[in-house]
Design a protein around this nucleic acid. Structure first.
Lengths: 190, 190
DNA sequence: TGTATACTTGAGTGATCACTCAAGAAAGCC
DNA sequence: GGCTTTCTTGAGTGATCACTCAAGTATACA
């Protein structure tokens, strides 16, 4: 009896993610979304409910994709190599809508307003940090990093450096690849 | 013959800076500014011309204040100690409107729109980086840092770490002071 | 093919956006 | 006190914001 929608929901969320990632929350208007998703307002609200609900979906996709890329890297090269390659990978991805992390952008834009999406971004960052800690611990088990270090401390610092790297990569005239290499090299001396 | 304005322009710019710093460009409405500056729209536009013009002034004040704080630190403690203390100082300043750097917030928010203010933020960041490089060079002359390092490379990395630190400080549940201490310690081993 | 059921359309909602401007108030000089 | 000049006031500008909804359209099952 029903009629099926003539779009791929997941693909729409990806397109929305790219737009939100690039332009931020306030910088993305519904008109922009309508253009990119090729949807009229009625369909949009029937499909997603609100701009905020779609942003949340987009951010979830962003976060899980990031974790999966890290996981894939670890499976292929092992924990320490994954941690070393990740910064470079992030910075060299020229197809990405922005160099900076969508989670940090969201956090910085909306934290002062105590917007629920800022809290959401925070949670995703925590999850990623936990993932980093896990890899650091595995690297210790493999003998690649001295066990005197607390993996959680290493992960906290690593993520901080990564966030800094990605802000720097958004700047003009800054050699982000060089910084990424420095971060990678810093892991050898642990 | 004329009538003098009944406000202190510099103080108004400071108040605007605090609001912009905290809430960002799009997050700060003219209504917000009118409330904080205690000005009606007519006076506001007579005094500053536009929201963008005031933001630019606010960002300039932010940038020069930052450079002066660093300079004061260097004069009191010397270059290497200044570089070590600066991250801690930034993170521990509880009176600041936000932990994150106003320049990076502006850059991340407006870079995708190619907004002139993003370019402006970029220039201020470059100036600050040059200041860092100068201190690194002075620290080398003083024998505190090995001369094998390029001060410009050190400054680039230092600023990246600092930006990451300040994003991390904006998060909840992250011990930013610990990261600041790690950054400071990292400078000893150079 | 008829009908029920969803999806699509797009003009329209009130609210808020940055900004304007004419009129009134206050200060400095004679 | 009168006059000039600037500052202050605040209602009002069109544009854009996120969002709604009634009407039209297409699809799947009978």
């Amino acid at each position: 009896m029903p009629r099926k929608p003539n779009y791929d929901r997941d693909e729409l969320i990806e397109r929305a993610r790219d737009l939100f990632w690039k332009r931020g929350w306030a910088g993305t208007s519904l008109k922009d979304l309508e253009a990119v998703l090729e949807m009229k307002p009625g369909s949009f609200y029937a499909a997603f409910g609100s701009k905020e609900a779609l942003f949340k979906l987009a951010m979830e996709k962003y976060a899980t994709d990031g974790r999966e890329r890290l996981k894939a890297l670890a499976q292929e090269h092992g924990p320490i190599k994954a941690l070393q390659r990740f910064p470079k990978m992030v910075v060299e991805n020229d197809t990405a809508p922005a160099k900076a992390c969508m989670l940090s952008k969201t956090l910085l834009e909306l934290h002062a307003h105590k917007h629920p999406l800022a809290h959401e971004a925070n949670l995703h960052l925590l999850k990623m940090e936990a993932h980093f800690a896990e890899l650091f611990q595995q690297a210790q088990s493999a003998g690649d990093i001295d066990v005197s270090h607390d993996p959680k401390v290493l992960a906290r610092r690593y993520q901080s450096d990564l966030l800094g790297l990605r802000v720097s990569a958004e700047r003009e005239g800054v050699d982000a690849k060089a910084i990424a290499a420095e971060i990678a090299n810093g892991l050898i001396r642990l």
